[in-house]
Design a protein around this nucleic acid. Structure first.
Lengths: 143, 143
DNA sequence: TGTCTCGTTGAGACCAAGTATCATGTCTGA
DNA sequence: TCAGACATGATACTTGGTCTCAACGAGACA
C-alpha cells in the first residue's frame, strides 16, 4: 500500500473526507525528500488554494504524518515523520536533517520535574551543527 | 549602578550611541518582570518608532541582555537575561518562566556529536509544563 | 428525485511580526 | 564649521499564517 493511500485511510478513519485537493497536498508533501516549507507545497499543487494547503498541512501535523522543524534562522519548516515524538539534528551548511532515534531528553525531563516541581507536558528541542560530509568538505578545501 | 546604566555602558563600549530612544526602549525592557513581546515594549515607549524598537531589541539580543523565548503556542517572546546560555521552563497555565540554572544538555550534545559525526554548534530547547502553584490550584479546585 | 445538512473548497481580506527604505536629525572628529 | 557616520520615525513592504464567506458536492433521508 502506498503512503498516500495509508494517509488517506487514516483520514477517513477519523471521519475526514479525502477530496482531490487533499490528495494533491498529501501527494506533494510525501514527494518531499527532505524538509519543506508551506510555500514549496503551494508551488507543487497549483490547483489547491493557499488556505487549503495550510489547513491540510495542519491536519497532517495533528495526525503525526508530518512534524514541524525550527531551522537555525528561526523559520518554520515541515518534514515527513516516520515515527512518533523525536528530535532533529539540522546541518547548518547543507540543510539536511537527521531524525534522532528517540527522544533524548526524557531522563532530563524527569530530573527537572523533580527539581523544580513542574509537571512537564511538552518540550521543543532542535540541534544545529555540521554533518560529517560538510566537515570533511571544509577540511579538504583548507588543504 | 543601575541595570540601565550597565547596559548603556555596554553599548557605548561597543561603539553604539546611547540615544534617548534607545534609553527609553532599554528602560521599558528592563521594567518587564517576566517575558514580553515587542508589542509590549512598543506600548510602553510611545515616543520611539516601531523600527527603532525592533532594532534596539535585536541589539539587546545580540548583546545577550535579553534572550528569545518560544512559547508553547509558537509565538516568540523575549526575556531579560541574567546569565549566558540557558534554557526556559514555561508554565502553560500562568505563563511564568523559570530559567534553568545551566545548559542541561551539554552531555547529551557530546554523546550525539560522537554518535552522528556532527559538530554541534547550537541548539534550541524549551520546556513546557505546569508549575507547582498551578498544579496545587487545580488540585484544590478538584476537591 | 428532490432537498437538506454539513464538511470542504478557493479567493481574498485580514493580521501579526518583522524588515527595508528614505528623508531627516544628531553626533563626532578633523 | 563641516562632512560623514550613525540613528531616527514614518511608512511601505514581506512573510507566514488565519478568518470569512459564498459556492460546491457527497451522503442521508423522505
Amino acid at each position: 500500500m502506498s503512503d498516500l493511500e495509508n494517509v488517506s485511510l487514516k483520514l477517513e478513519a477519523l471521519g475526514y473526507r479525502v477530496t482531490p485537493s487533499r490528495r494533491a497536498v498529501i501527494a506533494a508533501v510525501l514527494q518531499q525528500s527532505d524538509h519543506f516549507s508551506v510555500d514549496d507545497v503551494l508551488h507543487r499543487c497549483r490547483g489547491a488554494g493557499r488556505a487549503t494547503v495550510f489547513r491540510t498541512i495542519r491536519l497532517l501535523t495533528d495526525l503525526g504524518v508530518v512534524c514541524r522543524l525550527l531551522l537555525a534562522d528561526g523559520s518554520l519548516h515541515y518534514r515527513v515523520s516516520q515515527r512518533g515524538h523525536h528530535h532533529h539534528l539540522v546541518c547548518t551548511a547543507c540543510g539536511t536533517v537527521r531524525d534522532l532515534d528517540q527522544c533524548a531528553i526524557s531522563d532530563l525531563m524527569r530530573e527537572l520535574s523533580d527539581a523544580y516541581g513542574y509537571e512537564i507536558e511538552g518540550h521543543w528541542l532542535e540541534l544545529y551543527g555540521r554533518c560529517s560530509a560538510c566537515r570533511s568538505a571544509v577540511a579538504a578545501e583548507a588543504r
